Simulated scan of single mutants.
Amino acid sequence: MDDRQRYDRATADLDPPFAILDLDALRSNGAAMARRAKGKPIRVASKSIRCRAVLRRVLDMDGYAGVMAFTLPEALWLAREGFSDILVAYPTASAPALAELAGDARAAREITIMADCSEHLDAIDAAVDRVPSRHEIRICLDIDAGFTALAGKVRAGVLRSPVRRPDQAVELAAEMAKRPGFRLVGLMAYEAQIAGVGDRVPGPYGQVIRWMQARSQRELTIRRGRIAGAVRQITDLEFVNGGGTGSVEKTTREKAITEIAAGSGFYHPRLFDFYRSVTGSPAALFALPVVRRPVPGVVTVLGGGYHASGSPGASRLPQPYLPAGLRYDSREGAGEVQTPLIGQAAHDLRVGDRVWFRHAKAGELCERFDALHLVEGDRVVETVPTYRGEGKTFL
């Protein structure tokens, strides 16, 4: 029985659109990432999961410890639900959330928030000024991990922290040490130009990507190590975090790194087909029903316009996955309420049949569906709510 038959049989009683998670693929993908980490713990990126029940499942796997949340309100909710060791990967300007964090002993103990400038500290102080019995705020210092060349004229990587050099990190770490109510406990440096850019690209462009990534890895290994060493002269650090699904086996080699961040590899969305080092099986899929056959060789499915974030383009569209041999009409693409599909497989599809899609990215799928149907073999063994299904829309 092939995957399409399995999924169709498992979900025969469900009315599409809906989303599934193949638990066998999820476990296999998680084990593969843990092997790539070679013994260093992986902190699970919740933005790539966006389902509490699945988050618990992956944290129970060998090699995984801690959560990397994407907003402070999300982290506070997870802490209330019993999760621990939560790092918020992005700075926050939410005064109510900061006040709640400072006023809750357990949350303050379990949650670490991100900062990369004095303004962040000032904003925290202002938000918690009237909190009685303010608890100490745990801070992680975000470091710019981008790659630059030609005296800064060429840059690869995301625009995040202004802190790039050891002296800048030491200056901010020293300020944190002097200001009451803060404790610097960690460093983070996310190399998006390596972890988030696929290197399985043919032709000259692929050669440029691989050259850039190799140069960037060498530079960052030295710089990240120097920064961590310098900051450790100011304060003890509980962790130094780096990497992502696309760079696990590279980042883990750095002596300065104590833990890796990863999450997308569990679901193995379409974008991770373009990495040489990432092997896995698609685990998260969604099904759309065929509702029209406008002309021979064309079928139309309901919905489908679930574009992924990032630089716009064809790579951000979901992939018509099963049956194989379907593609978008170049004039319409993935539509808001309907999507025409063309290709040889369209000749055999009938109204009411299902087309299975893969999202371009991982957790964003869960912003479209209120539940994940967990599949083992050819059965749905459990249905669990996504963040959306629990009424949580953090972004």
Rank of each mutant, 00 (worst) to 15 (best):
L172H: 03
P312H: 06
S264D: 15
A256L: 13
Q319C: 09
G333Q: 03
L220K: 09
V278E: 09
S311C: 09
P294W: 10
A127P: 00
H268T: 10
A173W: 00
F369T: 00
I20A: 09
A10E: 12
I111L: 04
E332S: 06
K178T: 14
G377K: 09
T258I: 10
Y387D: 12
K361W: 13
A31E: 14
T252I: 14
R134Y: 15
L184D: 03
L98V: 15
A31C: 09
F369P: 00
R165K: 04
N29L: 08
G265F: 13
G389I: 12
M1L: 15
V44C: 11
K255G: 06
A31I: 14
A214E: 14
L271G: 08
R379H: 11
A195H: 05
M212T: 14
L72K: 06
P296D: 11
R130F: 11
R215Y: 10
V299Y: 08
A145W: 09
V299I: 12
R215I: 11
V131H: 04
L187W: 09
M61P: 03
T383L: 10
G206H: 04
T11M: 03
I260P: 01
S84Y: 00
V301T: 02
R6V: 02
A123W: 12
V355C: 09
C51T: 00
L159G: 04
H135N: 06
P312S: 05
D2I: 13
V298H: 02
P96K: 15
A10T: 12
M176D: 07
E336V: 03
I86H: 01
M33W: 12
P385Y: 13
T11S: 01
T258C: 06
R232K: 00
A93I: 15
F182G: 02
G30K: 12
R165G: 02
K392I: 06
